[in-house]
Amino acid sequence: MAAQPIDRDVKPEWRDALVDLLFQLADDDLLVAFRGSEWLGLAPHVEEDVALSSLAQDEMGHAAMYFGLLESLGLGSRDDLAHLRPVAERRNAIMVELKNGPGTYLEQPHYDWAFTIARAFCYDVMESLRLERLKSSSYVPLRDVARKISGEEKYHLLHHQIWIRRMALDPDAKTRLQAAFHRVAQDAGDLGSTGAHTAILEESGLLPDASGLTRAWQDQVQEFLSLQGLSWTPVRETSTGRLGKHTKDLEDALDTLSEVYRSDPLARW
């Protein structure tokens, strides 16, 4: 049964669920973009450096769209929403906030390429499943944005699949990749969670089949990995990041990301 389309005015009892969902989408993409941008100049080869910049730029554009939807709901300016909200209000999954590896961008960045690829692939699979559902969301502005973003995201998934296939052909790379997938799995429990309002998201049609995301996601990840001779450690759904519980890595990321913006929030850029 298709839910009644919602053009602008959301029922008051659904509003919190919509806002929470939009923060999950915006915060996920913001952190994916930020972690991607930290590879600038450090990627394994120059073409990948260029590709990563494009991927990060796409994700930042998507985050801006979701923050824009929140702005239009009266939550404040999208720049403020991206930069000024405290850690406890962030709704991204834990997996996307984790550092790329030891060191920092400026000092000894011994980033982990296998971890980056494993995480990016897991995220892209989740994102494709979520966007597929959002394309029939009852909230029309979100549906339109999801349709627009889907065309771009297909290439992200394809790009990371190509990397995994290539790495799986080399014994050393394959070992590292396998270890990276085990590590990603340890912190991926909340990736498919939709937080505190899952029942309302389904009932309102804002995000159809919200509760089926984790299972669909693991099936798809597992299927692709097994074709490359890699295994996936099944995860149990948690809701950690979706409820605002985060790691120190997020705090550090936001300190860096928002340092300039917070130095003078009234400046015009």
Binding site: E47, E48, V50, A51, S54, L55, Q57, D58, E152, Y155, L158, H159, I162
Partner: peptide, 25 residues
């Protein structure tokens, strides 16, 4: 990578994908 693409410079179809992402997204 398996979609045939003609070279815009010489028209040949003996082309290979080097990277899914070029200078812009």
């Amino acid at each position: 990578p398996d979609v045939p693409v003609s070279c815009p410079l010489c028209g040949a179809t003996t082309t290979t994908m080097e990277n899914l992402f070029g200078a812009t997204a």
